[in-house]
């Protein structure tokens, strides 16, 4: 019997904003520290540190995290040293791959100033706008609360930034907001952020953590959001939400993602294993990563 030759060289790379990423994986914002960055060398095609804001933020009091079945709820509160300090130390995240920077402001002006500031730095490849933060000019609802607020903030940033902009949305109204973001000049949509959630300390009869739900438990919801958004916009979709295996990565790409972010699961798994599983998937199906993108809809679906 003649053994079939196995493909040894798997096509892992994808293209984003005209640049080749060696793998379609990148960290989700807020889930990779500078201390852990060396552990993921070679795994990610791009890098993305935690969201930065105009001024330093202390974040919320503890407890900030509560475990749930197959996930967790966090209320970190965007703790970060502020954009000045952040940009000073940006090289801590330099792994020789394209660098995304995530920004968040409390007002449209804050977003605009941050984007302008960050865009001026040549180390920055692209910007992710974290729109899940409260818009203080609109009673504290997030910037994702309606298409008009998405339009306003994305247009403002577009006006001052020549860098690729990816707009990160929450699940609520995601398709409408994605269409608004694209129309306002977004170069990509990151789908999605954590979901609103609450955990209770039953013994103390108190709220334990009120915050954002993440981890494998939210994967089907994120999958739906990625699938729906990629059907509604032409710009690339970057997936975030519940990825925990290499097959999950493949599924998100089939649903339409060009790049897939690894978040909460990196606390309990080595992302290198996820990349290994993804390679194995590609090898088994004799496909390249880029061939997977959107194939649930296209001729490539089986």
């Amino acid at each position: 019997m003649v053994m079939e030759r196995r493909k040894t060289d798997v096509g892992l790379s994808v293209e984003l904003f005209g640049r080749r990423l060696e793998t379609p994986l990148m960290p989700a914002s807020g889930t990779l520290s500078k201390e852990a960055v060396e552990e993921v060398r070679g795994v990610y095609g791009a890098i993305l540190p935690k969201t930065t804001t105009p001024l330093s933020r202390d974040g919320n009091p503890t407890p900030r995290i509560a475990e749930t079945p197959a996930g967790m709820v966090n209320s970190i509160g965007l703790q970060n040293p502020g954009v000045d300090e952040f940009m000073k130390n940006l090289d801590d995240f330099d792994l020789g791959v394209p660098m995304f920077v995530s920004v968040a402001g409390n007002t449209v002006d804050e977003f605009r100033e941050l984007c302008e500031r960050v865009s001026a730095d040549e180390r920055v490849f692209a910007i992710e706008m974290n729109l899940s933060c409260p818009n203080v000019e609109h009673g504290g609802l997030t910037f994702c609360a309606g298409a008009s607020s998405v339009e306003e903030v994305v247009s403002a940033c577009r006006g001052v930034s020549g860098k690729p902009l990816s707009v990160k949305l929450t699940f609520e109204g995601v398709v409408e907001n994605a269409i608004a973001a694209e129309a306002s000049g977004a170069d990509a949509i990151t789908v999605m952020n954590t979901m609103p959630a609450l955990t209770v300390d039953a013994d103390a009869r108190k709220v334990l953590v009120k915050g954002g739900f993440s981890g494998p438990a939210i994967k089907p919801v994120a999958m739906r959001a990625v699938y729906d958004v990629s059907g509604a916009v032409d710009v690339p979709v970057i997936a975030s939400g519940g990825v925990s295996t290499g097959v999950d990565v493949a599924e998100f790409m089939m649903a339409g993602a060009a790049v897939v972010q690894i978040g909460t699961v990196s606390f309990v798994r080595d992302p290198e294993e996820i990349l290994g599983e993804f390679e194995e998937y590609l090898r088994k199906h004799e496909m390249s990563a880029s061939e997977l993108i959107g194939c649930l809809r296209g001729a490539g679906s089986v």
Binding site: L32, S33, A36, P63, F267
Partner: peptide
């Protein structure tokens, strides 16, 4: 309470 142990979650 710890989420990650390696500085990544800020928990």
């Amino acid at each position: 309470r710890m989420g990650c142990g390696n500085g990544s979650c800020n928990g």
